[in-house]
Structure formats: C-alpha cells, structure tokens
Amino acid sequence: MEISIVHLQLLAAVLFALGLAAALGRRNLFFVLMGVELMLNAANLSFLAWSRTFPGRSALDGQVAPLFVIAVAAAEACVGLAMLMSVFRNRESLDTDDFSRMKE
C-alpha cells in the first residue's frame, strides 16, 4: 500500500488530537506543555505533507514553515520549562487547577 497524502494528514490529525487531549486532560503543567509540543509537531507534519502536493519551488514554503515552528517551539520549551521550575519552587505544585489568581 502506498502512503498517500491522506494517510499523512490523518496521522497529523491523530497526533494533534492526542496533544490536545493531553493539554486538556492532564492537570500536571508539565504534561500540558508536552501536549502543546505535540500539537505543534502535528502541524509541522501537516505542513510537510501538503508541501509534497505542490509543484516546483512553492513546495519549499511548506518545508520552511516547520523550521520556524521548530525554532519557536524550542524557545517556548525553554522559557516554559524555566517558568515551570520557578512556579514549582514558589508553589510546591504543578497542578493547573491551583493556578487561578490571574483573575483576582
């Protein structure tokens, strides 16, 4: 069986759904962050898959966009983890439901 664009998009959709589920379902901030990363990479995969369907140079657009996403994701992971560390030091907890003070 040949791997077609549909298969790749389906895989990306599944990965995205898993990421969303992790971000929504887990209460540990650490896993929420991992879910977000997963969603970003699902989007990357989708980009790459679509890029194969375009002819010539315009295929490059789909391959360059993931590079930017990876860079942003790396920065996000870096800052996110650092914030997470300091949140844990201050609050002794990583439970997202504990953090509701922004509204007050």
């Binding site: 969303l20 971000a23 929504l24 379902g25 209460r27 929420v32 997202t96 439901d97 953090f99 509701s100 922004m102 509204k103």
Partner: peptide, 14 residues
C-alpha cells in the same frame, strides 16, 4: 470573560 480554570479556557479555545 475569563474563567479561572486553565484547562477549561484551553478547551473552550479549542
């Protein structure tokens, strides 16, 4: 307009 629950907010956004 905001809820004080992180996961609820995210779910609503999605």
């Amino acid at each position: 307009l905001q809820f004080s629950r992180l996961r609820l907010n995210m779910g609503l956004s999605a």
